[in-house]
Simulated assay, not measured.
Amino acid sequence: MVQRNVLKGLFFLGICLFSPLTLSPVLAQEPFYKGKTVTIVVGTKAGDVYDLYARLMAQHMPKYIPGNPNIIVQNMPGAASLITANHVNNVAKPDGLTIGAIYNALYFDQLIGRTEVKFDWSKFGWIGSPVTSNHLLYMRADSPYKTMDDVRKASEPPKCGATGTTSTAYWVPKLLEDVIGTKFNVVMGYQAGQDIDLAVERGEVVCRAFTITAFFAREPFHTWRKNAFVRVIFQTGKKRDPKLPDAPTIHELMNRYKATEGGRRLATLSLAAGDFGRPYVVPPGTPADRLKILREAFAKVVNSPDAKGDAEKKKLQIDPTSGEELETLAKEVISQPPETVQRMKKMLGKK
């Protein structure tokens, strides 16, 4: 009788040990992202190129994330995406369910000590960027400013539109003022790039600086180029973009006008924004395993033939930078000597 009871006990124990209900929680646990919704918060209006890239990611990333979550896009425009960056840093939970699509030059505001900045650029979790961002400056073709020489010699500076101090539309003209001696009247306060383009059409302003990618990606620029409505007079790449063979680079202009060593250092720091491209970040403190999942999914998207095909249809370039590279760059740009920071403060009008 005792032996029979012992055998029954061992049999019951064996069932318990190998039952799916009593397997190790690690082995039985479902993927974290299963049944979840991930939100990409974009610091621009819908239809902006930042928004177009985010929607491309939202379409293709879910299949590369274990658990296949739903991904949605939320637009939060304003202050050159500073509002979005502050939201991601301070409001969003660090749980891997909120991704920020933010402007690449927000580190300027942190470096010069603007009180509106409520984040540390170097502490975001960096997922990656789908494209690097060289920039251009266009002028209305009917304006008197045909070249940078015209801008330098003008008695009345051209009026350009901008959203905020870390938008390309602001800092590129200000960088040119510092390193080659031009003068621009930069009008602030536009909510998004599309608003500046409408202002150009209305004649409120005559110029805007922004990315080469955007200039060749959407309207109104297709129509503008066809009708020769604007002229590109400058670009930031180390060499001329094949699509802009007549626009000189900033390096050509710095050589022509004999920029100082301090000006060149400021240019190097500022142009690093182009290396950040159109970055995706998660809040500081996001678990490392979830950041790793998002980085791996991002890498698969930007190397996916399907995603590349969709990007090509939308005229969006894919020239990615990994999250690991952006993390390193973020730490580098924040660690600057006082004299370079002081020069950036002057460039951005910070006393």
Score class of each variant (00 low, 15 high):
63 K>T: 11
235 Q>H: 09
202 R>S: 13
37 T>H: 09
224 W>V: 01
226 K>Q: 07
48 D>M: 06
219 E>V: 00
9 G>Y: 02
119 F>L: 10
26 V>W: 12
123 K>G: 01
206 V>Y: 09
297 A>Q: 01
31 P>C: 09
201 E>L: 11
320 P>K: 05
311 A>I: 05
228 A>P: 03
312 E>L: 14
265 R>T: 12
110 Q>R: 02
236 T>W: 02
338 P>T: 11
191 Q>W: 06
331 K>L: 10
107 Y>F: 15
195 D>Y: 05
337 P>D: 15
23 L>S: 14
32 F>M: 14
331 K>Q: 14
336 Q>F: 00
276 F>C: 10
93 K>M: 13
306 D>I: 03
336 Q>Y: 00
139 M>N: 05
193 G>Q: 11
99 I>T: 04
60 H>D: 10
40 I>N: 04
211 T>Y: 01
144 P>N: 12
280 Y>A: 06
325 E>Y: 06
170 Y>S: 01
189 G>C: 13
13 L>T: 10
103 Y>K: 03
107 Y>T: 03
69 P>T: 06
71 I>K: 07
15 I>N: 10
175 L>T: 00
312 E>R: 13
283 P>S: 13
220 P>H: 13
178 D>L: 02
312 E>D: 13
25 P>M: 01
200 V>N: 05
168 T>S: 12
35 G>R: 02
176 L>A: 05
304 S>H: 03
217 A>C: 00
13 L>S: 14
148 M>A: 03
66 P>Q: 11
176 L>W: 01
235 Q>Y: 07
37 T>E: 15
92 A>R: 04
257 Y>E: 15
104 N>M: 11
304 S>I: 02
81 S>L: 04
306 D>R: 12
307 A>E: 00
